[in-house]
Design a binder for these strands. Structure first.
Lengths: 120, 120
DNA sequence: GAAACCGGTTACTTCAACGATACCGGCGGT
DNA sequence: ACCGCCGGTATCGTTGAAGTAACCGGTTTC
């Protein structure tokens, strides 16, 4: 829960890039995975999601908040602190995400092989 | 297998429009569902997918064929006949699609309620 | 001869998501 | 006085998927 997020958490050469299985917006599933182990700050999320710009991360988090997937808690401190956490609904996405990841890694070889043969 | 596809198979007000869970391109999952019960012709697919244009349906089917999800069989008859069928890999997507549909219908109420409260 | 069916193709346009870059205000530290 | 941290905004540009509308060639049917 207190452990820092792994900067390599999301491989730039993602297995799911073969046949994308997308949940919500482009970054939604990755945010859910980042929050799986507990609440995170905005700048903590930027570490594994280093390919995302602050604008898009804000957009994603606002949409997820609107949909009841995450909560946003701002602490009136200095320096400012904002924490995002999964709601039960957001947490319920984890099983679906896991299923998608399982399918992706299982099917990746077949898929890439089919593509290779297609352009033989 | 020989039964015609239901034109109302895909509700225009789709449950998954709340938080879209997308597999491959926009129409990929729907094509898989159309082919679940057996091979289908191009024009048969257009019936339940009446919101898709032939161009986009062709694109989708070509991509799925390239990825080894469907096979395309052209019969040299008159009038011409082309049949699309699921491969085992394409069929393996069904469990994932079912999981996505289950989550969507289970979460839809929560999601819409969260959105409503958000703009209360 | 005209029209319809089948399985598409072609050219043009639109639109929203995504990205790049720069900037902001309040505060604490040096 | 200045810099950096934090959690964002603002502005602009790009891109690619998707949609619209029209057309095609071969064949049977009217």
């Amino acid at each position: 829960m207190a452990e820092p997020l792994d900067p390599e958490m999301f491989d730039p050469v993602c297995p799911s890039s073969a046949l994308p299985v997308q949940i919500g917006d482009k970054w939604t599933a990755m945010v859910v995975l980042c929050l799986e182990a507990g609440p995170r700050r905005f700048s903590e999320l930027k570490v594994p999601l280093r390919a995302v710009t602050p604008k898009v991360l804000t957009q994603t988090l606002r949409a997820m908040q609107r949909d009841g997937l995450v909560t946003r808690t701002a602490y009136d401190e200095n320096p400012p602190r904002v924490e995002y956490a999964l709601t039960p609904l957001g947490r319920s996405l984890l099983t679906l995400i896991d299923a998608a990841r399982a399918w992706s890694s299982a099917a990746r070889c077949c898929l890439l092989q089919a593509r290779a043969e297609h352009s033989h």
